[in-house]
Structure formats: C-alpha cells, structure tokens
C-alpha cells in the first residue's frame, strides 16, 4: 500500500508539475500583440463587438467580445496593454444592461467560466480565483480540463496572436422588424430601479484605475441602440451610477446614432450594414479630432444631428 501511494504521488507530482509548467508558460508567452499602428483599443461586450468594424476605422483595434463581463475584460485588457505600450486610449463600453445584477452571472455562471477561464485563467490573480471558487466552485472545477487543454494547445501552436479573445463580429441577421412589432403589442416594462451587478462594476472600477495608473486615456462609450431597446428602462439608474461611480471618466454616448431597422441585427446589436455606416461615421469623428475636443458629447450630438439630416 505504501509503495502504491508513493508511486502514485510521484506520478501525479510529475504530472501536475508538467501541467503547471504549461500554465505558467502560457502566462508568460500568451501573445496579445496587435498592429503597432493602432493606438485606440475598444473593449466591452457584444454591443461594441457588432458596432465597431475596425477595418473601417483608422488606428483602432476592437477587442470586444460577446457575453464578456468586466471581470474578464480586466485581465484581458491588462495583458493587451502590457504587450502593446503604443495603445494610449481605451474605449470601454458602458451600456444599460451592464449594470444589471444578471451580469454578475457572466462572471461565474458555468457556461461563462467554461468559455473564459481557458483564455484568461493564466493571467487571473488569486482574488479572482477566490471569487470564482466562492460563487461557483463546481463550475470552476469543471472548467479546469478546458483550461489545461487551451494552455497545451497554445504551447503547441507556438503562442500565435490570440484571435479568439474578441474582435469585430460581422452580424448578418436582421430580425428587428419582428421584434419591433412584438414590442408594439407588449409594452416595455417600466422598471426604473433594478438590482445592480456589484462585482461586474467593481471590476470596471479596477480596470479604469489600472489604465489611469498607466497614464492611458479612458472613455466610457455607449454603442448605438435601437430606440425601442428594452434596456433603456433603467436609464435614470444607469446615468446615476455612471455619475456617482465614474465621475471623472468622460462618457461618449453614440446610442442615438440614427439607423434604419434594416441596419440593426436586433434592438441592441448592429448588423454589418449598420456597423459599416456607424464605423465610417465614427472614423470621421476621430479624424475631426473628437478625442481632443473639450466638449466631446456636444460635438458628437452635433454630428448626430447631421447624420439625421443625411
């Protein structure tokens, strides 16, 4: 029995050392380098992912990803910034649905851990693991094999630039008309005060502090939304949280960008037609020096007026 236990311990010690080696290797070799010409980074969830077609916007890299909470965005952005010192401006999506308590599920819900942990687990700190362990120990455990698999894959593929951590998503669908028709039948619930996503917002704070500590310019942005988007129901609460929690961070609101129903994929995502129109317009704003203006939102609003007229 002793012999068996000894051999088993040696076997698993070697195994766990080898696997840990690959995890550490991933931590140090993970490749997040982007084109050196880009100095503006966009992060967030599916709204900017579908809105900013970065092939049409100069010096911008869109690394937003569907279903990504600020928790994972924080670790991803840290890594991107570390490896791309040329990035000096970060645009972070801050939209109505990101303050909702349900967004905390995007941190520790099994499906989300399984999807995100393999990609960012190597860069996460003890505090982050403790949070996952407290909130969903089973989910964390179940994601471990996928994490190992991802780390091994990275090692054997030579740590190529990570393509699966986000980027512009070319959305083809258009189901806006049917959604609008439904909303006409079912009124939008008026729910001004909803539960808040504490952990998600905490990590947004951490992300902003981190970026400011590195002298990066940080902006919160809101991508275009359909006027009938149900998420507007918490607009007052949303604006209050923004003003109280992030008073010194400028908010660039593009939500009212005029688009036809056919340019939306649904009420909160632009399809490729809408993204093209918006990205060309946004690029023009950057060329005209949007980020250097003192009254940025006024400048945006004035441009929106012109876009309406067009």
């Amino acid at each position: 029995m002793q012999k068996f236990t000894r051999h088993l311990l040696i076997f698993f010690l070697i195994l766990s050392t080898t696997l840990t080696f690959f995890l550490i290797l991933n931590r140090h070799c993970g490749n997040f380098k982007i084109n050196e010409n880009n100095n503006i980074l966009i992060v967030g969830h599916s709204h900017p992912e579908c809105a900013f077609n970065d092939s049409l916007i100069s010096h911008v890299k869109n690394y937003a990803a569907s279903g990504e909470s600020y928790f994972y965005t924080y670790f991803k952005t840290k890594k991107i910034i570390e490896q791309n010192p040329g990035i000096n401006i970060v645009l972070i999506e801050f939209s109505n649905n990101q303050i909702r308590a349900s967004k905390d599920d995007w941190i520790w819900n099994e499906e989300y851990i399984l999807n995100r942990l393999p990609k960012y687990g190597a860069y996460m700190d003890f505090e982050a693991y403790r949070l996952l362990l407290t909130k969903n120990p089973k989910g964390l455990m179940n994601a471990m094999p996928a994490f190992l698999k991802y780390s091994l894959n990275q090692a054997f593929n030579g740590y190529q630039t990570q393509e699966d951590i986000g980027g512009y998503y070319y959305l083809e669908r258009n189901k806006t008309d049917s959604l609008v028709a439904n909303i006409n039948q079912i009124s939008i619930p008026d729910n001004p005060s909803q539960a808040i996503s504490d952990y998600n917002l905490q990590y947004l704070q951490k992300l902003i502090h981190y970026l400011i500590s590195l002298n990066k310019r940080v902006f919160l942005i809101r991508s275009p939304l359909h006027s009938m988007y149900e998420g507007y129901s918490n607009e007052d609460q949303f604006q209050e949280i923004r003003k109280v929690n992030f008073p010194e961070i400028e908010f660039l609101d593009f939500s009212k960008f005029p688009l036809k129903n056919s340019e939306f994929g649904d009420l909160e995502h632009l399809n490729h037609r809408g993204a093209r129109k918006f990205s060309v317009w946004f690029n023009q704003l950057l060329v005209e020096g949007l980020l250097e203006k003192n009254d940025k939102q006024d400048f945006i609003n004035a441009s929106l007026e012109l876009a309406h007229v067009d």
Partner: peptide
C-alpha cells in the same frame, strides 16, 4: 485525453 476532450 486532455487535447481531445470535449465537455463532459
């Protein structure tokens, strides 16, 4: 096994 594993 790790490399070819799928979700449970």
């Amino acid at each position: 096994i790790i490399m070819f594993s799928k979700k449970d």
